[in-house]
Amino acid sequence: MSQEISLKDLFLQVKNKNEYLKVCAPMVRYSRVQFRTLVKNYGVDLCFTPMILADSFCQNSKARYNEFLTTDTDSPLIVQFAANNANDFLDASKLVHPYANGVDLNCGCPQRWAMKDGYGCSLLSKPDIIQDLVLGVRNNLPSHFSVSVKIRILQDIKKTIELCHQLQSCGVDFITVHGRTPSQKSGEKVNVDALREVCASVQVPIIVNGGVKTLKDADDLYSAVKCNGVMAASGLLTNPALFDGSTKTPQTCIKLWMDLKNKSNDHITFQCYHHHLVFMLEKILTKPERQEFNCLSTFESVDEYLKMNILNDHTTPDYEHSLGNFIKCEFDEGITSQHGKKCRGCGKSTCYCICNRYDCDKTDGKYFSSFLEESDSLDYMETNMFAETL
């Protein structure tokens, strides 16, 4: 992948236009390369991968295959990792360095499993560890490869600003700030005043996140807090054309999604294809229609339903951003061999082993899907997962 795109230049370009960077959030199971390509056709400037556990990514080839897929047009791209020690974060960053424009450290996930294992929001009370993680990447990878951190606001706004200043001194390229505290739920109000104060107090670019369901929401948030970028999560799932001004998913978007599926061959699962359409059609189908659509179980049945009930215009969609060619990633064996195949079935949040048995040779590598069935909802991404279909 080309790394010619500089994140600093990207921020500078939008600043010179008196605009803001439009960003697609890291969403577990949903921020895949096909969806990243889709939203870029509707105004998104920067995309993140799903959050990936750094230690598992280093340890297990199946995790790398399942959690990181990219193409030669998938840029600019930020890979987000959850990590709790500098060694895992640095090594995971080295592995993806040839295929991405930067890495992001997740310090915003408030889920119990993440907090228990020292990931996500648990790091907000450990700025020294965050500093070690950031400096490890900053001091060992080229300067054009960005390193950033995603946080939530703290109850004490002064501590939030102090943390941002510490991150700034470590050399982060930008910071993403979610406008709710770790204890708040996704439906609660975003603290606009706190976000404004953070943006006014920090020199590095700030992307703000939380509560963005429409382009007007994004514009209003940008105007209110004077940030450098606005990130959307569930709003983009429901309407990938959000940043293009559409109030609901347009037919062209659904057609593009079908076409991206067709061009993906075996690089997309039915679950991924279908779940995205469930979100996209939320404002289009009636409740009985949604129930019917949600029960479809094959690519063919879904496509037939769309052609018969949704799509009136059968012209071929135009691309500004194409999917491109899939890249067969070659990961440094010198790094992966040091981490080995260590089973995570010892009380940590995630385990590769089938039914929590500790036989790593039988794992499918899909560590999120099995664990999250018994976990709390992915509230930090502002999404409602269809647990019954997992």
Rank of each mutant, 00 (worst) to 15 (best):
residue 61 S to D: 08
residue 143 S to E: 15
residue 148 S to M: 10
residue 49 T to L: 06
residue 27 M to I: 15
residue 115 M to R: 14
residue 95 L to Y: 07
residue 145 F to K: 04
residue 87 N to A: 14
residue 164 C to D: 01
residue 162 E to A: 15
residue 82 A to T: 08
residue 53 L to V: 11
residue 153 I to L: 03
residue 81 F to V: 00
residue 66 N to M: 14
residue 88 D to M: 13
residue 153 I to F: 10
residue 59 Q to H: 10
residue 97 H to L: 11
residue 152 R to T: 13
residue 45 D to V: 03
residue 101 N to M: 01
residue 60 N to P: 02
residue 30 Y to K: 00
residue 161 I to M: 10
residue 67 E to R: 01
residue 138 R to Q: 08
residue 37 T to R: 07
residue 160 T to C: 07
residue 31 S to E: 01
residue 145 F to A: 04
residue 160 T to E: 00
residue 107 C to S: 06
residue 155 Q to F: 09
residue 108 G to W: 05
residue 31 S to R: 02
residue 76 P to H: 11
residue 161 I to Q: 07
residue 98 P to Q: 04
residue 89 F to L: 04
residue 167 L to F: 06
residue 116 K to R: 13
residue 90 L to Q: 09
residue 42 Y to E: 00
residue 76 P to V: 07
residue 48 F to K: 14
residue 149 V to T: 08
residue 143 S to M: 14
residue 108 G to D: 00
residue 167 L to T: 09
residue 62 K to R: 12
residue 105 L to N: 01
residue 160 T to Q: 04
residue 164 C to S: 05
residue 73 T to W: 07
residue 113 W to Q: 10
residue 158 K to L: 10
residue 144 H to I: 10
residue 161 I to C: 06
residue 43 G to T: 10
residue 48 F to W: 10
residue 63 A to L: 13
residue 35 F to D: 07
residue 44 V to L: 04
residue 104 D to A: 12
residue 30 Y to W: 09
residue 134 V to M: 02
residue 134 V to Y: 06
residue 103 V to H: 08
residue 121 C to P: 12
residue 44 V to E: 08
residue 70 T to C: 09
residue 74 D to R: 03
residue 57 F to S: 06
residue 130 I to A: 10
residue 109 C to L: 09
residue 72 D to A: 12
residue 50 P to F: 10
residue 37 T to S: 12
residue 45 D to F: 09
residue 132 D to N: 07
residue 45 D to P: 03
residue 101 N to V: 03
residue 94 K to E: 03
residue 41 N to F: 01
residue 75 S to G: 13
residue 134 V to S: 01
residue 89 F to Q: 06
residue 29 R to K: 11
residue 167 L to I: 12
residue 152 R to E: 15
residue 88 D to S: 15
residue 65 Y to N: 06
residue 38 L to H: 02
residue 135 L to G: 00
residue 166 Q to L: 15
residue 130 I to Q: 08
residue 116 K to E: 15
residue 86 A to P: 02
residue 42 Y to I: 05
residue 78 I to H: 02
